[in-house]
Design a protein around this nucleic acid. Structure first.
Lengths: 144, 144
DNA sequence: TGTTGACCTCAACCAATGTTGAGCCGTTAG
DNA sequence: CTAACGGCTCAACATTGGTTGAGGTCAACA
């Protein structure tokens, strides 16, 4: 019986999310539910994976809005297959790599800059990441 | 004249933050100001550095609450010196390193797990990061 | 003398991400 | 039959990190 449905309580226990959060995700369109005869939500097992993916993406710093957009690219009519999930994975993998690079650069600059006295907004690569120098007088200006 | 004060407009331009944000930081106790004869905020140049540090910490994912706590350890009576800033730097450096490691692990697991079909909440290291397996029946249970 | 421009305060609002509570319903075990 | 349990809806609240606007002050420039 590969298509046995899960109640929201089971989803909650297995996904490690409060029921209120599942409700919230449904309001946000991140997941959907069907109802049983007594108007209770039931979920296909697929949804367990979907929720797992949402959690993973969130842990990696993706917002619910972005997650929602990404999930929208999953097929509507059929259950997503491995290739579908793989495409999502690839996007977030790249995202994560970028995020890691940013943090690493930040950390290295932090080490170099903050303690040594160079952390003046005028000159420091860290405080003034875009190397924007003001035209009039000394000191950096912020260019939006 | 090393102690020339800055107006809030100058702070804003040089730090690259809107005036409203400087007001907000002051409400939050992250920075302080003195007033001139016309009740306008003026800041010692020190504050420029302080704001730079706040921005850097924020970019690295530290919350304002944590930043505030860290800044509270700076000396009250005198201007912070290099060693003071260095202590802050060391804390956040460690923080950043931890964060980077988390993200890297996440990314690598993502690559391994999400596309390959193993991302079931029951077994996957990614979806079930603490390897918590339910005692009754198959399937992970969330242990808060 | 006016009129800018920069600044002030205070309160309200915003978006994201949920959480909490009140009040109700249907199923199930004793 | 009744109580407990699990679920339902809807509205309100919480937190973080700010932004926006109304209404007022002050100094400087023409």
């Amino acid at each position: 019986m590969p298509d046995r449905m899960l109640t929201i309580g089971q989803m909650s226990a297995r996904a490690g999310l409060p029921i209120s959060t599942l409700h919230f995700y449904e309001r946000r369109g991140l997941i959907t539910s069907q109802r049983d005869g007594a108007n209770r939500r039931v979920y296909p097992r697929e949804t367990l994976r979907r929720v797992a993916v949402i959690k993973v993406a969130q842990r990696s710093g993706v917002t619910l809005g972005e997650i929602s957009a990404a999930l929208d690219h999953l097929p509507k009519g059929r259950a997503p297959d491995t290739a579908d999930w793989e495409r999502l994975s690839a996007i977030w993998h790249a995202d994560l790599t970028a995020r890691i690079e940013t943090l690493t650069a930040l950390r290295d600059k932090l080490k170099i800059c903050i303690g040594c006295g160079c952390l003046s907004v005028e000159r420091c690569a860290l405080a003034n990441p875009d190397d924007v120098l003001g035209a009039e007088g000394p000191g950096a200006r912020y260019i939006p």
